[in-house]
Amino acid sequence: MRVGVVGCGLMGAGIAEVCARAGQDVIVVESTQERVDAGRDRIVSSLQRAQSKGKIEAAQPAIDRIRLTDDLNQLEDRELVIEAVVEHEPTKLDLFTRLDQVVKASDAILATNTSSIPVMKLATATQRPANVVGIHFFNPVPVLSLVEIVPSLLTSPETTRRAQDFAEQSLGKHAIRSPDRAGFIVNALLVPFILSAVRMVESGFATAEDVDEGLVRGAAHPQGPLRLADLIGLDTTAAIAQSLYAEFKEPLFAPPPLLNRMVEAGLLGRKSGRGFYEY
């Protein structure tokens, strides 16, 4: 399949990598040449690490299947385009309007990797809402096997089936279906849990280290909720929380002030070098 990926941050690079490793022809679009270069370095480094650890036989074949560009028009022949840009609704809406004009095939799937924005909103920014679906990967994409397939009320059954077949048969992922509600399945459960951990630290009830050690050693979690928040990105965590609160109006879904202040300060977790921990 001819796959397009828009955005080459942690998620976009991971999506492009797993598609290339699965033999797909991949074009990745970023907004500037500088970001194209950074995205290429991210993908190549990840594939070379996978080779050095014996997870793949050779990195070069997958690298050769990926082309990177700053020209969105290069996606015109794609059969599937996966959006993985910043979790900002106006940005995503503008992108889907542009993709609708660029991608030529009438049956092409326009997918979003959003973790919080309703798929319906993005679908109605196009003239083909039946072809728009959520394909939500989890970070790190090459490691975690789960994908959430999220049809909107306007997504056709054929689009949903094709999206699930792509995730399972082409990429070897395990797909679950979620209704088009804020947070979908995983984040609707996970993010309130993370927010509770943030409130513990904010109130002085416990340190970040003790919260995380408690969950790792006492509940057998692979990592604590605050280290996980740093991995997800505190800006992304806050955006999902805001979406959950907007939809359900539950106070426990609202992002705590500490989380908002950290985002405003640029303390976003691993990607900025500092969040609840330093990296």
Score class of each variant (00 low, 15 high):
Pro142Ala: 10
Ala188Gln: 11
Pro179Tyr: 08
Val201Tyr: 15
Val186Pro: 01
Val201Cys: 04
Val211Asp: 05
Ala163Ser: 13
Pro225Met: 01
Leu215Asn: 02
Ser156Thr: 09
Pro179Glu: 13
Ser145Trp: 10
Glu209Arg: 07
Gly204Leu: 07
Ile176Val: 15
Glu168Arg: 12
Pro222Cys: 03
Gly218Thr: 09
Pro151His: 05
Ser152Tyr: 04
Asp210Gln: 13
Glu213Asp: 12
Pro192Ser: 05
Asn187Asp: 11
Glu158Gln: 15
Ala219Gly: 01
Val191Ile: 13
Arg199His: 04
Pro179Trp: 11
Glu148His: 11
Val198Pro: 07
Leu146Phe: 11
Asn139Tyr: 07
Thr207Val: 03
Glu209Ser: 05
Phe193Val: 00
Val143Met: 11
Ser196Val: 06
Gly204Glu: 07
Ile185Asp: 06
Val191Glu: 02
Pro225Glu: 03
Glu168His: 00
Glu158Gly: 01
Ile194Arg: 01
Ala206Lys: 05
Ser152Cys: 06
Val201Gln: 03
Asn187Pro: 07
Glu148Asn: 12
Arg217Pro: 00
Lys173Met: 12
Ala188Met: 03
Leu215Pro: 00
Ser156Asp: 15
Leu190Asn: 12
Asp165Gln: 15
Ser145Cys: 10
Ala197Pro: 09
Gly183Ser: 06
Gly214Ala: 09
Asp180Glu: 11
Ser156Glu: 14
Leu195Pro: 08
Gly183Pro: 09
Ala188Val: 01
Val198Lys: 06
Phe184Leu: 02
Leu195Val: 14
Ala197Cys: 09
Leu146Ile: 12
Val191Asn: 01
Gln164Ala: 13
Phe184Glu: 01
Leu215Tyr: 12
Leu154Cys: 03
Glu168Gly: 06
Pro157His: 00
Arg177Leu: 13
Leu154Pro: 01
Lys173Thr: 11
Pro142Asn: 08
Thr155Ala: 01
Glu209Pro: 02
Gly172Ala: 13
Pro142Gln: 11
Pro157Met: 02
Leu195Ile: 08
Ala182Lys: 10
Glu202Cys: 04
Arg161Tyr: 13
Gln164Glu: 15
Arg199Val: 00
Val191Thr: 09
Ala182Ser: 08
Asp212Gln: 08
Leu215Asp: 01
Glu158Met: 11
Ile194Phe: 02
His221Tyr: 14
Glu213Met: 14
Asn187Glu: 08
Pro140Gly: 10
Ala167Glu: 08
Val186Gly: 01
Val147Asp: 07
Glu209Thr: 10
Ala208Tyr: 02
His221Ala: 05
Arg217Tyr: 14
Ala208Phe: 04
Pro142Ile: 13
Arg217Ser: 11
Thr207Phe: 04
Gly214Glu: 04
Gly172Glu: 06
Ser152Pro: 02
Leu144Arg: 12
Leu189Phe: 12
Val211Trp: 10
Ser203Ala: 10
